[in-house]
Design a protein around this nucleic acid. Structure first.
Lengths: 215, 215
DNA sequence: ATTCGTATGGTTGTCGACAGTCCACGGGAG
DNA sequence: CTCCCGTGGACTGTCGACAACCATACGAAT
């Protein structure tokens, strides 16, 4: 039942139904969700680990306010982890790419059905990248990447600016590079992630400009 | 008070006072540590995040049995994170290396005082690498690295086979490369970590040989 | 008017108790 | 003798209650 509370809260935060900066009161949430305080407490702890919630002792938890720097940081961390995974894949024997192909297939299918980034496209995207990291065969890298999944989902949902024309083909190129065991695969992964990061960085510059004009 | 329980349990597991595979009963530990079940529960959750404890719903927690593959994996994950951090440092402006120099100083001092790897040397080692990652300015990378600290400490304590002659100089080379902003710094970091990993891999080979002979 | 001290409401930290679940042991049938 | 089923014990999952703590609002003194 704590799992149910966790999913409920996570979804509510990602969808923005609970706004950023909103404090999460344990008793209140317990009453709303029809459960006890323990379950809410556990769920909040997990959400803290996932980076969706800030927490201070004796102060309580609040939905994290994601600054532009934070959003960039998600991609910085993902770049380190995913390129490391790619390097690891190339270092070892050729892995079974069946699941990755299937993930790409689902990504192409959902992207074809909808002509913009929807939740199903986001799910397929994240599934693709998680499978990529999983192929490195490192439980700890996979774990580290999974903790970033919630934030990634949040970013993709509120910041869906990726060049739609090359959205699927870029992922296909990653798979292709992996199939050919191209030594440049890590750089390709980095470039793919940096594309999203640069779009956010542009937003950061716009913010700077905006605040500068105000001041 | 949950923090106290956490430190107590973590230290006991790292030192091996609680053997691997030992189940962690909440009531029992609560009685032993003179606290309630909640504190023990919270501490166990954190230890699960740190990879020291395995957990299954309705089954309880047990001290994780670290296979050789697991020990290797710690270094695989660290290599991805730390090389990513090094790349990030080189990509940005030159950071303030004061703290890193101080960490190296402490490392050299403790290594000079003791002629083998002791707990204080381990602390200095981990502090050095954590500062290295911190310099990348990525909270998420730092966080991911911190979750590996406990396992790293455990490994260094039970597997202190690093070429002692180059132990300090290798770290000094890392700092030097960072000061010179050497583009090869990430490879240097990777080599440093792979040295430890290879020693463990040798142990893995020995294990394989041993089991093969038994069979 | 400002600042310090105090009080008060609300929230988290912690605890013990009850219910649900899993596992191991034991008994009976084949 | 082996296998299946039932039962008991122990442990975790969950809950509500009490205590500790923090923050804010209010009042008084300077």
């Amino acid at each position: 039942m704590t799992e149910q509370v966790l999913r409920e809260l996570r979804e509510a935060i990602i969808e923005g139904r609970i706004p950023q900066g909103e404090p999460l009161r344990e008793v209140s949430l317990a009453g709303t969700l029809g459960t006890g305080r323990s379950a809410v407490r556990e769920a909040i702890r997990q959400l803290v680990q996932e980076g969706l919630v800030d927490y201070e002792p004796h102060r309580g938890a609040m939905v994290r306010v994601m600054s532009v720097a934070d959003r960039l940081d998600v991609y910085i961390a993902r770049e380190a982890i995913e390129t490391g995974a790619a390097r690891r894949i190339l270092a070892g024997p050729a892995p079974d790419l069946t699941h990755l192909r299937a993930a790409l297939e689902r990504l192409g299918q959902t992207a074809c059905d909808h002509d913009r980034i929807t939740d199903s496209v986001i799910d397929a995207d994240i599934a693709f990248h998680e499978e990529l990291v999983r192929l490195a065969g490192s439980p700890r890298l996979t774990r580290a990447h999974e903790t970033l999944a919630a934030e990634t989902r949040m970013l993709l949902r509120h910041h869906p600016a990726y060049p739609w024309a090359s959205y699927v083909t870029d992922h296909a190129q990653l798979l292709d590079a992996l199939e050919r065991r191209d030594p440049a695969t890590p750089e390709l992964v980095a470039a793919h992630l940096r594309l999203s990061a640069d779009l956010i960085a542009g937003e950061l510059a716009a913010d700077r400009k905006e605040t500068a004009r105000v001041n």
